[in-house]
């Protein structure tokens, strides 16, 4: 099957996982996220995060990429996590500069941070190692509307093309000594650059559309799928369920 060859981490994916039905990974990722959200004890969340990270590394997500994504996420959550110990009432754990930091707030902050990290790493491990085309086909087989899937596949296909277009335009700007700064001129130039990208995109879409018409496009594509549910998929699904159940059960102890 011709794949788009668009994968975040193309070297990734252990052979046994690559053979599994991609629907398994999507459902598995959602089930993992739901489980994590249901967890409350910090220790269980930490275990889940460590498990997810180990899985991600095992599946071939580069260590650097994993650390970088986590840092980016923690940066985003910083405001939230710093403010919670101050805003949530409860017995004080410590005083910093005269401000009481409450235990419940600290706990809640840590819980949110761990939850978000674990869900992100789990998603990264299961979905970022999947080819975009396979992801699209699998979504279609999970009864996501065909139009949405087509839109997804087309967009994925042409992001690379327009990225190249953007780099060409940006190089042309650099050749004319454009340096991005904090001024109206720069922002307007970016606006014109993005406008040009839209115009090029429109031109390209006309050619794509004409080409599709030439080949008798009548509003539907066939969605190829070469992967079927096998015994290995059932097995993997069961192992996954047991693992998630164990996480939930452990917390009840």
């Amino acid at each position: 099957m011709a794949l788009l060859g668009v994968t975040a981490y193309p070297t990734a994916g252990a052979a046994w996982l690559a053979e599994r039905d991609p629907r398994l990974r999507i459902v598995g990722a959602v089930a993992f996220a739901l489980t994590i959200v249901a967890l409350q004890a910090l220790s269980t969340l930490l275990v889940a995060l460590v498990l997810a990270s180990a899985g991600a590394l095992l599946l071939g997500v580069p260590t650097g990429a994993l650390v970088w994504r986590l840092l980016a996420l923690e940066g985003l959550m910083l405001v939230l996590v710093v403010s919670l110990p101050i805003t949530v009432p409860g017995p004080a754990a410590a005083h910093v500069a005269g401000v009481a930091l409450s235990w419940p707030g600290l706990h809640q902050g840590a819980e949110i941070l761990l939850t978000a990290s674990a869900v992100m790493v789990g998603t990264l491990a299961l979905l970022a190692t999947l080819d975009a085309a396979r992801l699209g086909y699998a979504l279609a087989r999970l009864h996501v509307p065909a139009r949405l899937v087509h839109l997804f596949l087309f967009t994925v296909r042409y992001v690379g093309v327009l990225q190249g277009e953007y780099q060409r335009l940006r190089r042309a700007m650099r050749a004319r000594a454009f340096v991005a700064g904090n001024n109206r001129h720069s922002w307007r130039s970016f606006g014109w650059l993005f406008g040009m990208l839209l115009v090029r995109g429109l031109e390209r879409s006309r050619r794509v559309h004409d080409a599709m018409r030439c080949r008798g496009f009548e509003g539907r594509f066939r969605l190829a799928h070469d992967q079927h549910w096998e015994r290995g998929d059932t097995l993997a699904a069961m192992v996954w369920l047991i693992l998630l159940g164990a996480l939930l059960g452990w917390e009840q102890l």
Binding site: H150, F154, V161, L198, G201, S205, G219
Partner: peptide
């Protein structure tokens, strides 16, 4: 989203994604 408009919508969406 008419089927005929999918390529156009996708290309414009891709352009804005890149931007």
């Amino acid at each position: 989203l008419h089927d005929d408009r999918i390529p156009q919508a996708a290309l414009l969406a891709a352009a804005l994604f890149v931007a």
